[in-house]
Design a protein around this nucleic acid. Structure first.
Lengths: 215, 215
DNA sequence: ACCCGCCTCCCCCGCGCGGGGGAAATGTCG
DNA sequence: CGACATTTCCCCCGCGCGGGGGAGGCGGGT
């Protein structure tokens, strides 16, 4: 294994880079091998320095973080990229992951979360912060919202999730530890609210709306 | 945040549980609140103890880890589940994530990786080990995630696509300009080949395998 | 020519599902 | 306190669905 995880910083703001550098350098087993102020510099520096992890800002002059990520992750033996952004409500999440990023974090993350993220992606795993996941789901669901899917109660949502796993009413009743008649009521309510004729149409609506996702 | 991350162990082997307990307990901020030797016990213990994270073995007597995970993650406010398995070449990855697991790890993982995984999922993030990602990506690329979906005939594929749009047998028959009895035959064949019990499970399989996509 | 897979259509049968009603127990909120 | 939503359970009923057979035509293979 590597003795130390080599990190490259890419951010156009000096202040941010300095802050990141301090956090990374103060952590045993992590070291900063270079800094870049724009996407183009990040790509060329990454090719020469061959870091393990690149902390990539999204908004940068010339070449933005998404493009740089795409360029970096195309090659084999490429560094892992953690995209770091300021804003939570961010369409970049999806594009960043599509571009090959292994992680997505907010700048307001605590130092230990940042360090954790670096170690995780360096180990080859992937990491998303909660809001990023919601953002992904929302981005899909908002686009083709099914009228009424937001009007489901908590319990009805539970039932729909289990329906979308292919469970029968009896199985759902067993999972939720209630009677089958109760499940029938919830299922009926879900069908009515979603405008579905049968459970299959409800499951289709659940997938199309992003209420559940193919994982 | 919480003072300590509460962990429930579910594994049928005492040795493994002991090992896990030692690793978890020796870590500041983590504590083991209970142990279960089978899936059923894991579910009931989780409901009473309300842990933050459940370390779930796949192979257990009575109720296996996948079923237990499905039962646990159905409800809202459910604990995060990290599925732990011995074998890397594992179809369980897919099913575990389908069942709602937040993480998937190998038993051969190092102690610090395990601890890291617990912290990550407790924070609401998701974590996969490299091979699991490859497995998922591979499963998505080719429509082979569901055994038998590649064995569908052209006509059966047509029928499945229409099923996945929520059409009834009669509507499918009208769409394909054949008799309802013919559609019933195709539907029956699709169910058999996909190992599905009813049309809803077949539609779920169609979505999960990428045979149809939420547009 | 033969077999075999595919598509087509038909029979019967059991059961889960969905629609119709009602009702009681919670908890919330003005 | 009353109005309301939510969750839980119960009744009856009709029908679509799924499983079990079988059967004929049509094409492509060794």
């Amino acid at each position: 294994m590597s003795t130390s995880i080599r990190v490259l910083l890419a951010d156009d703001e000096d202040l941010i880079r300095t802050g990141l550098r301090i956090i990374v350098e103060s952590e045993p087993g992590l070291s900063v091998v270079g800094e870049a102020a724009d996407g183009a510099a990040a790509v060329s520096l990454a090719r020469s320095l061959r870091p393990d992890v690149v902390l990539m800002d999204v908004r940068m002059p010339a070449v933005d973080g998404i493009q740089a990520t795409r360029a970096l992750t195309a090659a084999q033996g490429a560094p892992k990229v953690v995209v770091v952004t300021t804003f939570e409500n961010d369409d970049y999440v999806y594009e960043a992951l599509l571009a090959g990023a292994s992680g997505f974090l907010l700048k307001r993350a605590r130092a230990d979360e940042l360090v954790q993220a670096i170690r995780v992606v360096a180990a080859g795993e992937s990491l998303l912060f909660p809001a990023a996941i919601r953002s992904l789901v929302a981005a899909r669901g908002a686009a083709r919202a099914v009228p009424g899917i937001g009007r489901l109660t908590a319990r009805e949502g539970d039932v729909l999730r289990l329906m979308a796993r292919g469970l029968s009413n009896a199985e759902i009743a067993a999972e939720l530890v209630v009677g089958t008649e109760t499940v029938k009521t919830h299922v009926g309510n879900v069908l009515t609210k979603l405008g579905a004729r049968d459970r299959t149409q409800a499951v289709v609506a659940a997938y199309e709306s992003g209420f559940v996702s193919p994982r």
